[in-house]
Amino acid sequence: MEFGPYLMLAMLEGAVLAAVLALMASGLSLVFGVMRVVNVAHGEFYMLGAVMAWVVTQFMMGLGGGPAVNFIAAAVLAPLIVGSIAAAADVVILKRLNYDPERVIVATIGLLYIIQQAALMGYGPDAKPVVAPFNERIALPWVAWGENGLEMYYPWGLSTTSYKLFVIVAAVVILAGLRLFMTRSRAGLVMRATQLDGEMATAFGIPVERVYAIVFGAGAALAALAGVLIVPIQQAHYLMGGDALLLSFIVVIIGGLGSLAGTVVAAVLIGMSDGIISVFFTPTLAKIIATLAVALVLVFRPQGLFGVKNR
């Protein structure tokens, strides 16, 4: 394949990764932005979303549901279940630690292992697939100069699937919805007020601890939704949360902890560069470059590209 079509293919793969990463990292960023705590177990909520998607689709298959119905059920139920587990963990664990940032890091490391081992015991060590609701191959056109000027043709191998395009569109729609929710709704306003000054929010009748539980649950639900979206492309496995967590941290550090806009921009940068570098060179080099980018950001702009200094 020529360079142009090859680059386009790499960019498409990168866009799928960016979409999933943006969803997952937005959850991490939302939790840090409002609660000022780092959730190290965030990757496990992503894994749990994927595993729950498999569980729900298996259950639905038993009831005779088709792939589309099964997937819709998984996309609705898995984030709800995972979000509820996270909200319960907030009330049972984080609230008792008074949301102390250092102790929350240690507690969520513990939570990471509990969830991971519970998944290993309940789900097993094998990777399991979920059938995509639709997965038609779509050949992509390319243009090149021919004998009659600019000509369109379909290079061999330049294709994607309808499901991959759906993942990109779904992530864009969900993130736009999240943005609208945060900026236009009363609940979003309450979350932003809590983020800006929790004590003053309390002084104006906002039940801050309840907001924290909801935010922690919502952050985990976003990670779970990312897990549901990725599982027809990448199988569900109990160890899949580790790499996703690392990439999410890279994204939120580059974008600026707590900045949703920054998270999305950084996810696109990291996702696209990962896709392109992985296709042209190796996935390892892509990870090395992403890590180097984090190091550069931490040295030259520690608050991230969109973060605010000394908040």
């Binding site: 306003l189 309450v190 800006l196």
Partner: peptide
């Protein structure tokens, strides 16, 4: 101690809440 990133209208909205 206003919610400095929020608008005047949004600060009032928080009070009304």
């Amino acid at each position: 101690r206003l919610f400095s990133e929020l608008t005047v209208a949004q600060n009032i909205e928080i009070g009304l809440g």
